[in-house]
Amino acid sequence: MSQLEPRETVAGAEAPSTHGGALRHLGDVRFYVAVFVALLCCTLLTVAVSSVHLGALNLVVAIVIASMKATLVVLFFMHLATGSRFNAMILIVSLMMVGVFFAYTLNDTGRRTEVDVDQSAKVSPATGLPAPGGAD
């Protein structure tokens, strides 16, 4: 057994590898507080932007800001910046699968057609024009 001495390292710097980075890395308190302040600023920003009418861009801006916050939490509070790369891979693969889930589902639900009773024809709700697909 090697000696396991707690070791002070500057946050963001390479953790000592001899004793396993995830176990030994010790962040600076001021750094954690700075991350928290950044998260608060992002929250205020997203609330402020929500009252500005940007149309479809509102959703994009909200998702981008939320993802910035999520990145801060994952990298620094959850220590993926200094922790195991393999753990990071598990997270990234999960998020890719969420992307597949969204893409295939919305590609389906966004193209479904409704039956126009008056014309007895399938029409796309988006365009109002005759559209293929759906059950007979």
């Binding site: 929250t43 997203t46 609330v47 929500s50 009418h53 509102n58 959703l59 909200a62 998702i63 800001i65 939320a66 916050k69 999520a70 939490v73 994952v74 509070f77």
Partner: peptide, 15 residues
């Protein structure tokens, strides 16, 4: 916390 970070803008802050 991460889940709430996404729930908050998607539910409370729509346009």
């Amino acid at each position: 916390d991460l889940v709430w970070i996404y729930l908050f803008p998607l539910l409370y802050l729509i346009d």
